[in-house]
Write a protein that binds this DNA or RNA. Sequence first.
DNA 1: TTGCTCCTCACGTCACGTGAGGTGGC
DNA 2: TTGCTCCTCACGTCACGTGAGGTGGC
Lengths: 287, 287
Amino acid sequence: MSRSEPVLSIGELAERTGLAVPTLRMWEDRHGFPRPHRLPSGHRRYSARDGELVAQVVRERAAGLSLGAAIARVQRTADHQEPSIFAGLGQQWPALAPHRLSKHAMLAISRAIEDECCARSGPAVLIGAFQRERFYRRSERRWVELARTADGALVFADFPRRRSPRGRPVELPIPPSASLRREWAVICDAPRSAACLTGWELPGQASTPDARRAFEARWTTHPEMVRSATRLALDLAAEQSPQAAAECAAVLDDVPTHQADEPERTVALTNRIVAHLDALSHRPRRR
Amino acid sequence: MSRSEPVLSIGELAERTGLAVPTLRMWEDRHGFPRPHRLPSGHRRYSARDGELVAQVVRERAAGLSLGAAIARVQRTADHQEPSIFAGLGQQWPALAPHRLSKHAMLAISRAIEDECCARSGPAVLIGAFQRERFYRRSERRWVELARTADGALVFADFPRRRSPRGRPVELPIPPSASLRREWAVICDAPRSAACLTGWELPGQASTPDARRAFEARWTTHPEMVRSATRLALDLAAEQSPQAAAECAAVLDDVPTHQADEPERTVALTNRIVAHLDALSHRPRRR
DNA sequence: TTGCTCCTCACGTCACGTGAGGTGGC
DNA sequence: TTGCTCCTCACGTCACGTGAGGTGGC
């Protein structure tokens, strides 16, 4: 997990987390968290990661934990947080259970999220993780289309080098040892179109035919959960391209997450998923 | 999960849970929990299960939950608690992770717990779950020996009928549909000798040779966790024999759980396990 | 200069537990 | 009769947040 630069003032952190400025000072006084860098003048400066951890504490408190217990728990899990969107999402939202999905189901949900993202309006950040470059190349036309209207688009895969083609998704190589290399992710963080799917292939399927490979996955349309996935992905992106990650992070300030998730939106997404599954079952294709 | 009879006065419940009497009244006033039966005079009467749930709330509070959140969580999980020692233990103690163990390891740990139990002094409750009667018959001599010095000894298996042979473990049949039928359990609840092992066979091993069957198991020497296992088992026992369960429950009042778990005790148990594993690897035997 | 941030001191509210005080049933 | 239980009312403590009030840096 990257340690992002301390750039946020206490007022900016307060706005991002929904807390009052004196409350953040009080947490620091009484619990030593969050502990910001200090300018020579004494002014506090927080990192984006501090913001994620504070948001995590807010969630734990909403679940009924005392402030001290919430901070202790978040700091404990943050210490050994895996550099994985799938795993990190599970740590931050225990209620978001993993499901076993076929490759067909993964494809159908991915396409459905992309469709919804196309149909959206307003600011958007779009992130994909493709394991292999060739998987991305097969979907590239779609993604270029999506990136045209998004304010930030990033794609992870085993690219040979980093590229930032104008008007197209930024291509970020994944180090060979990174666990992100095993992950499949599609994240659309946009107002009223938020959705994400993350998962990884279950191990021990070397001899399984491609079409029947099984994945363990989490997916959701809950705006706050999607935001967590986005932040986790941007943390990973910052290791390759701090600038691209920062640009996307700036967009997020304009995408609210506090609105309630709308059931009819999930129904619409489900309908798209069903349609894609139906199509796939008639003419199977490889990702 | 059985609904045991409401027999405890508020003073008895307070002693069992370590709470003050006015605190229990306060919980009921402000949160509607625990809600006891009432005698015509108005006096409260609680069930043993109420005691378990209150103890569970105490644990959640120790983990940092507010009283209201702790009660809500315990009531939610209690509603769909599985009639299984293994599963119930996992619900009540999330930190007690399951491990995948070979049948050899299960046997070695079981034998080690039985050894420790033999070496103990003071009051003891002893419980076994054997899946098949023939597994129990193979160990019966050991268990009769153990039961001689224990104050309560119960054994679950697919017995044709319930028996209470004098000076021997009470034999409790498991209904064919019960999930307990798949479980393996050895519980020794005694001062300074507390230990338990519970597990079940992983499904889909019909074609696996007996010696290589794999189990998913939890085991511990933590006195409070062992007590939870005992209570879960006694709840299940009460369905077959309320009297035997009540007699064992009465013994537990004399077995303290508040003492710290002693590391050297776990080391001693581990040494026994290693010795048994070593012996098993030289002359494999069936349970 | 404006708005932000620094700090300290203090208060307000709420959750939670306990204690007093008088009563009737086990 | 003794100890337990009933109930109500009230208080005490602690966790947590907020507000005032005066200051200096962005």
